[in-house]
Simulated assay, not measured.
Amino acid sequence: MRSIELISIPVTDQQVAKEFYLKLGFKIIVEAPYQGGANWIQMGLPEGNTNITLVNWFPEFTPGSIQGFVIKCEDIEASIAALSAEGVEVATPSKTPWGRFATVKDPDGNAWSLHGE
């Protein structure tokens, strides 16, 4: 095994979630019809190896249940400023011995931690 390739993010509305993740800096890798009227929306960060897919077809996946995934930022203050300019709400960063972290939530409440210096 080499890496985590894809993480499913449970969402209510795929298109609303897609717009949020585009603002967060993700790019669309694949968007195509899938099953039951859903779409396969696979996204990734420009320099990352792990992708996400926005899912709404797994009944056991509760939208908003994802917590604690960390996104590395070169400059957390610049990232927060850019996201705020896009209308994305970012929590005030907290300082820890291993860096600074700021939480951002998608429209369903899935929480991501921005990490940087």
Rank of each mutant, 00 (worst) to 15 (best):
D106P: 00
C73I: 04
V11S: 05
V70R: 01
A102D: 02
P46Y: 00
A38H: 13
L6C: 07
G87I: 06
N110P: 10
T96P: 00
G68P: 05
E89R: 08
G109N: 10
I66T: 13
F61C: 13
E117N: 15
S65P: 06
Q42K: 14
S113H: 07
G116Y: 05
A111F: 03
Y21S: 06
A102M: 02
V16Q: 12
G87C: 05
K105Q: 15
K23V: 02
V55S: 11
H115N: 13
I28R: 00
I76C: 10
G48S: 10
P59C: 03
F101Q: 13
W112A: 10
T96H: 14
P10N: 01
L114S: 04
D13N: 15
I41Y: 05
R2T: 12
F26I: 08
K23S: 09
S79L: 00
N56D: 11
L114N: 07
I80M: 08
V16K: 14
K95W: 01
I9C: 08
A102L: 03
Q67E: 10
A91D: 15
I66Q: 11
N51T: 14
G99N: 02
T96F: 13
H115E: 07
L54K: 08
P10L: 07
G48A: 15
D75I: 04
I41F: 06
F26E: 03
T96C: 03
N39H: 11
L22A: 10
I71K: 05
E117D: 15
L114H: 07
Y34A: 14
S113L: 12
L22K: 14
E77T: 14
G64K: 12
A102W: 01
